[in-house]
Each structure stands twice: as structure tokens, then as C-alpha cells.
Amino acid sequence: MASGVKPRVKVPKTAAAGDVVTIKTLISHKMESGQRKDDDGNIIPRSIINRFTCDFNGKNVIDVTMEPAISTNPYFEFEAIVPEAGDFKFTWYDDDGSVYEESKTIKIG
């Protein structure tokens, strides 16, 4: 179990219908690659976030497969069209089976 994992998301509170909004996400995670060795020469087991998804009102916006070369605290910034008011749901999948979720509501106005 990776410690100190905390998702963060920044989504505008409001948008006009049909607007393209910029979404920023970050999850604090050490992203241990599985390539490094400790002081005794033993391999430190891989522990990364391997998948990140974002859905809007149940419809997928982005689905990312992540690999061990991605550095600590992975940050994703992307754009999404907002056709109506609703919820963005963000999900991060950890190697250890943990799933971290966050959601943000956006209004039309």
C-alpha cells in the first residue's frame, strides 16, 4: 500500500453549455518503477498508478494507461466539452488494487 496518496482536481465551477474547459489533475504517489534497488541490492517492488480515467455524467472523457517510466506525482491536464451541467468523476487505479476517486460538479451559467 503506497502511503501519502492524495488525489487533487481542479475544474471550473461553472461553464457555458458547449464550452471547452481545462481540467487539471494530480495524484501524489511515489510511482516506484520496479527498476531500482535498495541499499542491500534487493529490487524495490513496482508500485505505480497504472490507469487514470475521467467520466462526465457516465460518459468517458479520457482513459489513460500509465507505465513505470512516469514520474512521481503524475499530473494530467486535458480539455473537455461541457454540454450540460453534471459531475466529472475521476478514478486512479493503483498496482496494489486501491482505487482513488474524486468528483467535481460543474454548473451551466
Binding site: G4, K6, R8, K24, L26, N73
Partner: peptide, 12 residues
Amino acid sequence: DFDNPGMIFVEK
């Protein structure tokens, strides 16, 4: 502040 990675350490 969201883009500034230093703020992660501030939260800690």
C-alpha cells in the same frame, strides 16, 4: 498553486 509542485509539500 495547483501547478506548483511545492504546494504538495506544504499540504504535508
